[in-house]
Nucleic acid binder design. Structure first.
Lengths: 211, 211
DNA sequence: TGTACATCAGTGAACGCGCGTTCACTGATGTAC
DNA sequence: TGTACATCAGTGAACGCGCGTTCACTGATGTAC
């Protein structure tokens, strides 16, 4: 008996055992394929191949291709959350917020294929895992917003800030904004966040409320 | 001799002629396929089929699949531009801006597959048509920003606003924000735009500049 | 402690599919004389 | 005005590909006696 890092127990007999944890191995294989070849390269067959297993083996663990994709996306959400938390554990100023935004975009650009699987796929929008992960992100952003902007409409502003950062990620990812150097991207993201949070209104009936 | 709506002249002999304008017909066919079946359904073969032509015929007009996709995306950009201009010819207040944002997101939700081809495809980011179209959007947003927020950093704020709207579009498109009723979407988008443009800063060193 | 057995994870061959792309071709078109 | 010809848009058959999924199977595993 030994255990994986995630605590799942597994029977390892040393040589060739039934495989041990194909379920997890397929997700790892899928992640590797995404790193290497982009979202196009990710197929059930390719994941099975990479895991050293027959094309039909995955069906013991996943109902179909979409089920595997969902599992992969779930890992992606978890890693994104960690990545943001590392950038700043509890952001409370606009500078902190900009740092988190930069991290979000950096994550997208470093793992573009994974990011696309997480967000770009129209499939299975009602998978439980995905819904939960989405909710987690919304909550996380919401907490930041309440800390930074206590007087604002929290729902609307959370949505806006998530959308802002998410849009920056996708525009870079899709080449609509130049992403050739990480520093330039970081600077652009930071500037955009700051610009939006210090915008001076020329045409609104009354000037913004300042506490 | 007769002419298409776009002015290209064409030889129509009445019955079955060489086809006349396969180039344009393929783009139309592709657009129809996108409307009907999503981005997955769009293949060179399917477009040829729909245009009533052999699978090899498109190669007279497009080098490969990506070339057709680029042409389709170009049409999409043109239509998006028209759609936004219809929403408001020259927005100059935050309300106008919100209306344009709502239109942008509505376009994405009404023609999701086309929108994905325009933005979600990693392919051929250096096609001339696409670069030009991207620049056109940036310019359009830039003009709005200069009109609405003359004192702001125009580049940063244009980027931010495009990203905000683009992010709202994708989050709805991908089911991260509920898009079941158009009215709710419009309200959410409008609220988000207003929230961001009237944000009251709690933690910045100095209050925002008001003219 | 040893043996019979049920379980079930993985095999491998096969299915039908649609795809992008190529190739030698054909036949209508417009043009040069 | 009529005819010969070059052009070139579209044909249709074929290529090899990888995919998702199914099926009857096998063989290692853990368990009950």
């Amino acid at each position: 008996m030994s255990t994986w890092e995630d605590g799942r127990s597994v029977r390892t007999t040393g040589g060739t055992y039934h495989h041990g944890d194909l379920r997890a191995a397929l997700v790892s294989a899928a992640l590797e394929l995404l790193e290497e070849g982009g979202a196009t390269e990710l197929s059930l067959r390719a994941a099975a191949r990479r895991a050293g297993v027959a094309p039909s083996a995955p069906y013991r663990h996943y109902a179909d291709r979409d089920a595997l994709l969902s599992a992969v996306a779930a890992v992606g959400y978890r890693e994104l959350a960690e990545y943001l938390a590392t950038a700043h554990p509890s952001p409370s100023t606009t500078d902190d917020l900009a740092a988190v935004a930069v991290a979000y975009v950096r994550f997208a650009l470093q793992r573009p294929a994974l990011f696309r699987v997480m967000f770009g796929e129209p499939c299975d929008r009602d998978s439980g895992e995905r819904v939960a992960a989405t909710a987690a992100i919304a909550t996380y952003v919401g907490a930041i917003v309440e800390r930074c902007f206590p007087t604002a409409d929290p729902d609307a502003l959370s949505t806006a800030i998530w959308a802002l950062v998410h849009g920056l990620a996708f525009l870079h990812l899709d080449g609509k904004l130049d992403s050739s150097t990480p520093d330039a991207v970081a600077a652009r993201v930071s500037a955009a966040v700051h610009a939006v949070l210090t915008v001076s209104l020329a045409n609104t009936p009354e000037p913004p409320l300042v506490p």
